[in-house]
Design a protein around this nucleic acid. Structure first.
Lengths: 248, 248
DNA sequence: TAGTGGTCTAGACCACCTC
DNA sequence: AGGTGGTCTAGACCACTAA
């Protein structure tokens, strides 16, 4: 396979805790320490590799946050049986995401206007019914292909009646541009749905196609909602991936 | 509002780093430190609250991992403008998830048999075509209601030809039960799809309903696939949520 | 040059677990 | 009682940043 460096090079520019973390990862993968067993004690590891216990703890804490290892007070640091049923999916900013994949993102604003809140909007935004709110609809493109249909409902701030277009129209940015308040809390819900006739037309797919529905609610310091958003991601072009365990 | 404890109680059983973390979170929320500004330097914070710099660093490191703050070498620790466009969704074990919600999970095995690998399976599992593999199909229930349709494709280990039923049939468990190897790497893909006639019948929903499709590939120490799974989650009953920013 | 965060050390005390 | 991980300290040196 590969050459193993089963020691810590203190003269290296790579931090000792990082070297030790990789070393322990490697030894776990190799089977020196099996799931259910414990690592040597922190003191022992420190002596073995000639580093201080705090540095050992730093390495173990990284492994612990990756769920590779689980320290137990008074007992030892156990090698975890990896739990691949517990998965974390990241949904990143559309523009950043596309750029990272080498795809050119863009957006087109379909509509932007004031509206009086109906019952549903009033409840979501916790404002009185018929209060004005700002409504946005836009399409996000990846290499000229429509990928996301985006709607936003934003609490109306009298001070700022403007409706300028933004290059990266995330809900957070639009809320900050049209409202003095900086959102401090976010609740997001990921669902699946089938597209309506109108939605599928805008996204250039067949009606009743499957899509991700990402709902987002933003709150200010006082736990008041300041914006609500619903984004429909084309199911045939979008997916989330997640890696667990020990990868290189 | 509430009483503020803007000091560290060293006699408390709550660790100092934790108290400081909450304290800084509170002061950020309150506006003492605004996004884009820096916190006082680590040395200064240590002096202010009468604790050591390493303890301050521990608190800041927690805030940093929550993306509330972002330390910059040589410059200072900046309060982040929260990025609510970068979201993390957790997909946990079905059984644990349901129990946590107070719902009784159960499962029913529909089918379990050996089959020779066709081209698709052979490619996924990186085995020669027509090699035997183990096939599973089951339904997962929440309070007697079908919620997930689950299929598994597992590399066949000659030593263990048994096909016993497991109470919690996660791909990982089944792989470990039918194969000596412990998976060490997992790749998961979350997609949306519409259900076929058969799938919708099994899940007791209308055909063409939207559903989550969760695909999972498990690998052993040598980066060989050991199992492949596909789970269909009913879209009308399942959703993922994610909280960002400062919550209580 | 002065200040910042990043790393590391060699101790210390504690609560917890096991024998 | 002895070993474990959890916390904390008071220093130290470094690389980086900005004036």
């Amino acid at each position: 396979m590969e050459m193993d460096n089963l020691y810590i090079d203190k003269s290296s520019v790579i931090p000792a805790y990082y070297q030790l973390m990789k070393l322990l990862e490697h030894r776990i993968r190799r089977g020196d320490f099996k799931p259910g067993e414990t690592l040597p004690s922190e003191t022992e590891i420190a002596e073995t590799y000639g580093i201080s216990r705090m540095t050992v703890r730093r390495a173990i804490s990284e492994l612990s946050s990756k769920k590779i290892v689980s320290p137990q007070k008074g007992k030892g640091t156990y090698v975890s049986l990896p739990k691949f049923n517990e998965t974390v999916f990241e949904l990143n900013d559309f523009f950043e995401d596309m750029k990272k994949k080498g795809i050119k993102p863009s957006s087109r604003l379909i509509e932007a206007k004031h509206l009086p809140a109906d019952k549903i909007i009033a409840e979501k935004l916790q404002i009185p019914e018929n209060t004005k709110y700002i409504f946005f609809r836009s399409i996000l493109y990846a290499d000229e292909e429509p990928l996301v249909y985006d709607t936003k409902y934003i609490v109306y701030a009298k001070q700022r009646p403007l409706l300028e277009e933004l290059s990266n129209p995330s809900l957070q940015d639009v809320v900050m541009a049209h409202n003095n308040k900086i959102p401090i809390k976010s609740l997001r819900i990921l669902q699946v749905t089938t597209l309506t006739e109108q939605e599928s037309f805008l996204l250039n797919v067949a009606p009743m196609s499957a899509a991700f529905l990402v709902e987002q609610l933003l709150y200010d310091q006082n736990d008041k909602p300041v914006g609500w958003g619903k984004s429909l991601y084309r199911g045939d072009r979008y997916q989330l991936t997640s890696r667990g365990g020990i990868w290189y």
